[in-house]
Structure formats: structure tokens, C-alpha cells
Design a protein around this nucleic acid. Structure first.
Lengths: 210, 210
DNA sequence: TTATTTTTGTTGCAAGTGCAACATTAATGA
DNA sequence: TCATTAATGTTGCACTTGCAACAAAAATAA
């Protein structure tokens, strides 16, 4: 029911007590529905319980840009330091979202102290996790050539999967988006890496030879 | 004395009470001294009171990479979600750094409740701010051409400075680092933008013509 | 199973970029 | 003030990359 990071280490019964104390609501949204129409103006705190949602910007010419993809367990809302006034949150699929006043999270009552403390701890960790994920992506995007981007990405993956036989966790097409390079140019570079003996790969299965 | 974001909105006397309650220490470090030798293992919370510090990685070949630059008011420590075991914090100049147990921040006692609440709020905001800064940088780095990176960056700057006559807040050389492109190629592109009438610039002073 | 869609793989070519090397201007320190 | 260093500006050239267009293989749906 509540098995996601912000509630880690809190008994389900305590989660329920907390949410009751916070006057939390669980709202359901259909795909493409607007969850929040001005991110910088809200005084609420949101947790995605089920489904997915995107933070999007509507550009002056009507096109929309996905600023951030969020999924089950992700949080957003009043704490977000953005000044930008044109950010929306849109459900990317049918979703259930928990909402309560941000103040309730911050201003602690005398009840459920332990659980409340743990929740704050988890929220901080959640943000820090995302920060380190972003940091890693920046490290990769900062590499100048496609080859170097690939190698740095493979390096991180290898560290996480604790093996030199890594499996790319999404399609090669998505990988080219992640690295922000042309897919065909990336494929060409993967071929080069194979020919140069730095890797031995077949599709998304890659053996690091260094 | 304590005029930085994490203490915003908290009376100086209350800040002092809090820090006393937390058994906080103020440590001084000389330039290049090691502040923290295993970021993922600490149980402390750090606030830079004066000076600057970098999070660095020592690569297998002995070279070091600056992962993140931090300055007065920035925070780091136990909440950082990184699993990486080779990250150090090094003082980039002579610095004073406030340290206390992370648990003290999370587990609230009955004292100084108001101030403590506000501190947590500020820490959340601080992390969210950084998140939005990182997000913006990723947005820029994701653009394919130098021209598009420049235009996106100029766009953000224009929004922040609320004018089309923007001033780049660091050297053009640093800008090329920030955009992760070759400096001379960037200069060439700036010239092209001028010739195409999209901007009118002289050094770091830029007028947006769109 | 067969049909359809998605993903992977490949190539030529034009355009964009990094690199190296140097000239000019601005900023800094003695 | 002059000397020195840092920052800005410029160019040719080789290499890398994006783009377009297509083929083959794999995954998914009917």
C-alpha cells in the first residue's frame, strides 16, 4: 500500500496515523489530467502513490516540454524552489496522488513523533538521491565526445551493477536521448568501441574490456 | 554571522540556541585541507559558514575531478544519497564549517521548536533550489548545438534578470565550461548570432533581439 | 500464426565542433 | 606607471556528429 521510499522504515499503521493527522487526501487523475497548474504557487506537498506524472512547461509557441518525469514514490510541491511561473504537473497515466499541506510536514505536532521524524529524514534522502542522480547525468553530459559519454555512462552502470557485464536498463534509442546525442551517431560509436576492443556488445548487453 | 539561507527567518539568538542544543562545532580548514574523507559514510551534517569547498573524486589514475563546487551557505553530509565511496570534500580556500550530528537535525527535542521547524523547512528549500539549478543545467546541456545551448542559457538568464539586456555573470571562458563546449567554437557561434541579428553583444554584455 | 510496430543496425553526406595557434584587448599587481 | 597575466576574439583544418533514408531483426498485437 505505502511501500515507497518516503515511508521506508515507518510501520503502515503509523503511516496511516500520520496521513490522518495531516488531513491528507488521495486524489485520482486520469491520464493527461492537470494535477497542479502553478507549481511555484502551491502550499501543498504531493506524493505519487500510483502512476506517473510529468512536470511540463508550455512554451510561448504552444509546444510543451517535459521538464521532469516522475513516477511512483516521487514527491513534488511547495518545497520546490523554482521561481518559474509556467510549470504544470500533468498525469502521464492514470494516477493516484497523496496531497496534504506542506506546513503539516514541517510544523510538528506532539503526535506520532517517531514516524514524523523518519518521514522528514526520508524526504531529505529522497531529494538528495535525486540530486546525486542529476549530478551523475551532468557529469555524463559534460563529456565532449559521444565515445566519452558512453564510456562514462558504462562506468557508472558497471559500478552500480557491480560487474563488467552490464545490461543497459532501457532501449538504445532511449539511451541516445539520455546522452542527448543522435541515435545513429551513437550506434556508429558503439561499433567503433567494439572494433577498438574496448567493449564487446550485442544490443543492450555490453562487456567492458578495460 | 549566520546570514545564509538555511538560517533564513530564524532569529540569531535562536540559531545560537539551536546550535548549542545540537552540540555543533565550528571547524576551520586551510585551503586544500580534507574536510571529509568518505562522504557516503558520515553521520554528520555540514554547513559552510565561510569559504568554499569542493566535492571531488580521485580517479584510479590519480587525477581528481571536481564533482561539485560549494560555497558559503551550502550544506552537505549524511543525507546525501550517494553510494559512491571515493568522494572527498576538500576546502577550496580557508574555510569555517559548522558540523553537528545529522540525527540532531532529524530527531527533534522539545526545545526551540519553532526555530527547528524553520530550519528543516530551509534545508528542504535549499535542496530543492539546487535541484532546480541542476535541472536547468541539464536542460541546457541537452540541447544539441552550441547555438541552441547559448539561446537556452540566454533565455534563462533573461528570465532571471527580467530584461533582454543581460550580463553573463562569469567569464566567457567559464561559460564555455558551463555549456561543456569548446571556447573558440562558442565564440564563433556568438559571432554568428550577432551576424544573424538574433543578439547584439559585446563581451559579456548581450542584448536579445528576439 | 501472420501482420504490424518498435528497435536495432548501417551508410553517405553536409554541417557543426574541437583543436591548435595566434592577435588583441582588458585586468591585475608590483 | 609599466609589466605581466588573464580574458576575449579570430581562423584553418581535420574530425565528429547530426540528419536522412533505409534494411534487418525483434517484439507486440491481432
Amino acid at each position: 500500500m505505502f511501500d515507497f521510499p518516503v515511508f521506508d522504515g515507518i510501520e503502515e499503521s503509523d503511516v496511516k496515523k500520520l496521513l490522518t493527522e495531516f488531513n491528507a487526501l488521495t486524489l485520482t487523475f486520469r491520464k493527461d489530467a492537470t494535477v497542479l497548474s502553478n507549481v511555484s504557487n502551491t502550499d501543498s506537498f504531493f506524493i505519487i502513490q500510483e502512476g506517473k506524472a510529468n512536470i511540463v512547461r508550455y512554451n510561448f509557441n504552444g509546444t510543451k516540454t517535459i521538464m521532469e518525469k516522475m513516477e511512483k514514490g516521487d514527491i513534488f510541491g511547495a518545497f520546490s524552489g523554482t521561481i518559474e511561473d509556467d510549470l504544470y504537473v500533468i498525469a502521464a497515466e492514470d494516477s493516484k496522488i497523496i496531497v496534504f499541506e506542506y506546513k503539516r510536514l514541517i510544523n510538528r505536532s506532539g503526535k506520532n513523533v517517531e514516524a514524523h521524524n523518519k518521514l522528514i529524514d526520508n524526504v531529505l534522502n529522497k531529494l538528495a538521491d535525486k540530486l546525486s542522480y542529476f549530478n551523475e547525468r551532468i557529469e555524463i553530459l559534460t563529456e565532449k565526445t559521444i565515445r566519452d559519454k558512453l564510456l562514462k555512462y558504462f562506468g557508472y552502470l558497471s559500478k552500480k551493477q557491480i560487474t563488467k557485464s552490464i545490461i543497459i536498463p532501457f532501449t538504445l534509442s532511449d539511451l541516445s536521448d539520455y546522452l542527448a546525442v543522435d541515435r545513429s551517431a551513437m550506434m556508429r560509436e558503439i561499433k567503433n568501441l567494439n572494433e577498438d576492443g574496448l567493449i564487446a556488445s550485442k544490443g543492450r548487453y555490453i562487456n567492458l574490456k578495460y
